[in-house]
């Protein structure tokens, strides 16, 4: 855990304390970035960028949120920025609906999604984030709310929708009978 004394020392300019904080945040931030970005290299890039932002902004961190959730918000925003810059996929609502129809067709065609991690990455970004924070970071609703900067009920909505969508896909795959939707061990 990062105690407030360590944070205060870092805010006061003690570099050793700052490096200790970055070290403690590194792995949790990497884990979120890994699941959001989907590969090791992008996750490392996102982690590096997020830690830089933590360093630059720690002096103005006021402690309204836990430092872990505050840093999680930074890394999720960094990941979204990386997607945006690459013009990959951060979809407007109407696009999301269209994509979902395509997703349905893909399932109908019997396309295989053999990996739970891949299935998560097919969810809209807020749902992905809520699922990752809940299960990989083991956050409760309040912590997810802080990390995403969203109201509690909105967070629940994203989490519930994400789980429901995964359940739907799981059920469809099982009905297909051609393959099982199991996580790689």
């Amino acid at each position: 855990m990062l105690d407030s004394e360590l944070i205060q020392r870092a805010q006061a300019g003690e570099r050793k304390a700052m490096v200790e904080i970055l070290s403690k945040l590194e792995t949790p931030l990497y884990r979120t970035a890994f699941y959001l970005m989907g590969n090791e290299q992008d996750a490392l890039d996102a982690t590096q960028e997020a830690l830089l932002k933590v360093y630059r902004n720690l002096p103005s961190y006021k402690g309204e949120a836990m430092i872990y959730t505050w840093a999680q918000r930074i890394v999720t925003n960094v990941c979204m920025d990386m997607f945006r810059k690459r013009k990959k996929v951060v979809l407007m609502e109407e696009d999301a609906i269209r994509e979902d129809r395509n997703a349905g067709k893909e399932v109908e065609k019997g396309a295989v999604i053999s990996d739970l991690k891949q299935a998560i990455r097919r969810l809209p970004m807020p749902q992905q984030t809520a699922i990752i924070l809940r299960y990989v970071q083991e956050y409760n609703y309040k912590e997810i709310s802080e990390a995403m900067g969203l109201p509690l009920n909105t967070v629940k909505s994203h989490l519930f929708r994400g789980r429901k969508q995964l359940q739907k896909w799981l059920s469809e795959y099982q009905e297909g009978g051609d393959f099982s939707w199991q996580m790689k061990k």
Partner: peptide, 14 residues
């Protein structure tokens, strides 16, 4: 376990 860069699908209107 590198993941493929999958395309996001949309939300459903539950």
């Amino acid at each position: 376990s590198d993941l493929e860069n999958g395309q996001k699908m949309g939300d459903t209107n539950e």
